[in-house]
């Protein structure tokens, strides 16, 4: 354990040091500017202190971001519009809904592809091609169009999440459903198992490890989809809306805190799926 934790801590510490240094470097110009206008000469210590405590710095120092996150999570009521938790929840709900849709669609497509040659030949190449299309680019259109049809709020964002998350699931599940070897399939045949029985007893259980691996990728993609889905149309709530508002008003600290919240959310979701994976696989005797 120490073998692995120590290097990671060292790298993270190095990143934080670099960050503080970069904050001094990037914010120095503004600090000097202000000092010159006030007619004061800044010493090195004052300069550094100033760059780490500006209102709208080019790069906020880590402790400023941490303060902002603490202020907007613990310092606010959860229902308040100022609470970052409220915004996180808005994004999270779209993420989870889209992820659920995407996983269901992905599993459905994979089952079809594995069982039908026609689908394998005609759909699979398009599933792959669909990912070379920068789908996030059309997120604004999906949202505007669905708005015009009268669907707004959670669902359009979830659609984008769904589109981003179904692909890893299809690819992983196709691989997983095809993972039983010829010997195992022959064994099922000697037991006179029907295709349905082969599916439920052999293919599906064999695909579970693959499913979890792709779900980890899918949920991260789903979160990105939900955040980008909030960017156009001037959404009023959600982490993406915080990013956009922050960039309009130059509130860098707000942008960074939203960014870190998104990172924490991503880490949490991936960790949750990892935990679920361990429990399920152990239950199935594969862990």
């Amino acid at each position: 354990m120490r073998h692995r934790v120590l290097p990671v801590l060292a790298v993270v510490a190095a990143l934080v040091v670099v960050w503080y240094g970069a904050a001094v470097w990037l914010n120095a110009a503004w600090a000097q500017d202000r000092a010159a206008r006030a007619g004061v000469e800044l010493g090195l210590v004052e300069l550094v202190a100033d760059t780490w405590a500006q209102d709208k710095p080019k790069l906020p120092a880590p402790h400023q971001v941490a303060e902002e996150i603490w202020r907007t999570t613990a310092g606010q009521k959860i229902t308040s519009r100022r609470s970052l938790l409220h915004h996180s929840w808005v994004t999270l709900s779209a993420t989870l809904l889209g992820f659920a849709f995407g996983t269901a669609l992905g599993i459905g497509l994979a089952v079809g592809i594995v069982h039908s040659r026609v689908m394998d030949m005609s759909v699979m190449p398009w599933v792959i091609a669909s990912q070379t299309i920068p789908i996030l680019a059309i997120a604004p259109m999906i949202i505007v169009v669905l708005n015009a049809v009268g669907i707004s709020g959670l669902l359009p964002k979830a659609m984008i999440s769904m589109y981003l998350s179904f692909f890893p699931v299809v690819v992983g599940m196709v691989k997983g459903l095809r993972s039983p070897g010829l010997m195992q399939l022959d064994q099922m045949k000697t037991w006179n198992a029907s295709p349905a029985q082969t599916f439920w007893r052999l293919r599906l259980p064999a695909s579970v490890p693959y499913l979890f691996a792709s779900m980890k990728v899918a949920i991260a993609a789903s979160l990105v989809g939900a955040i980008v889905g909030e960017l156009p149309t001037g959404a009023v709530a959600g982490l993406g809306a915080r990013l956009l508002a922050g960039s309009y008003y130059g509130q860098t600290i707000q942008i960074w805190s939203a960014l870190f919240m998104a990172a924490a959310l991503a880490a949490l979701l991936v960790a949750l799926i990892g935990a679920l994976q361990r429990v399920v696989l152990r239950r199935m005797g594969m862990g």
């Binding site: 290097p7 993270v12 979160l223 955040i227 980008v228 993406g240 922050g246 939203a258 990172a263």
Partner: peptide, 23 residues
């Protein structure tokens, strides 16, 4: 460095980096 950077890199690769865009 490799042992330290690989988990951090894996973590960052899963993050919504696109959020860096406004910055």
């Amino acid at each position: 460095l490799r042992r330290g950077l690989l988990p951090v890199g894996n973590f960052v690769a899963a993050l919504p980096i696109i959020g860096m865009a406004p910055i």
